[in-house]
Amino acid sequence: MAVKKPAAKSNVSAEELLGYYRDMLLIRRFEEKAGQLYGMGLIGGFCHLYIGQEAVVVGLEAAAKDGDKRITSYRDHGHMLACGMDPKGVMAELTGREGGYSKGKGGSMHMFSKEKHFYGGHGIVGAQVPLGAGLAFSDKYKGNDNVTFTYFGDGAANQGQVYETYNMAMLWDLPVVFVIENNKYAMGTSVQRATRSPSLWERGAAYGIKGEEVDGMDVLAVKAAGEKAVAHCRAGKGPYILEVMTYRYRGHSMSDPAKYRTRDEVQKMRSERDAIEHVRELLLQGKHASEDDLKNIDKEIKAVVNEAADFSKESPEPALEELWTDIYA
């Protein structure tokens, strides 16, 4: 993994740093719990966990303001928690219950929140990219300064519609931050086995779009890059690309035996580059928090996640009449 620059540490308060720690830990614990519920048969179908990639969404949310929008693929639990959606509603959607964000009709890959400006949760690889540009189009049309964060993976980066979108986003100066979450594997295919392009963000140059590579295991580096990208968009200069180098610890989905990479590779990332451990060290070294403080946060987060899990089991399955609702507005 290329680490190009050290984290800009100066402009973050202890309180903010603690906030990032808390947000990343919530995602990790939530996802571990989701994995457990999947194992128990409470969550069905596809379930793509975000463990390892937490710094990406938490860093970018730190660069967002109220009114900004976000849209992503099917690996979406982290994005929802990071933008403030209720863990109970997310978990209950995973278990397919009435209390879920989509009343149990969407599942892990399809959740939305108008209130939090979260526009899904899309299951067709790359489809969220023009949709995100369309959201940015609506903001530009209305004349506000909102920005849309459009997340996609290294796999989606090879879809043609991404480049159709780059072209129009630049042509029309759309305020969209394209966030390529490069976790090195598109399901079981490594980036090197899918393209000869040395970097994915540089493909934007063909359309005149600026961008950069970011260390996605460093939440502060992500935040700094996010702020730069957002400022670019808000200034009316059009889109910006961030290729965030990250890593998922778990398989592509729950049913992935992960034979395309070694256990050592995963273990090395976990022990040397873990984003949560990194912030934990910053907090302890900077004396912004004590071991006890962090233990208390751990406890709080565990309680939140357990509450979400309990809710997701207790919430009833949707009423049978729900089969026939929400087809037309």
């Binding site: 526009y119 990219v129 023009p130 369309g134 189009f137 609506s138 159709e164």
Partner: peptide, 14 residues
């Protein structure tokens, strides 16, 4: 493919 997607996104956006 691209402008149909942008259109749908714009509709999601109001």
């Amino acid at each position: 493919h691209g402008f149909a997607g942008i259109g749908v996104g714009a509709a999601f956006g109001g």
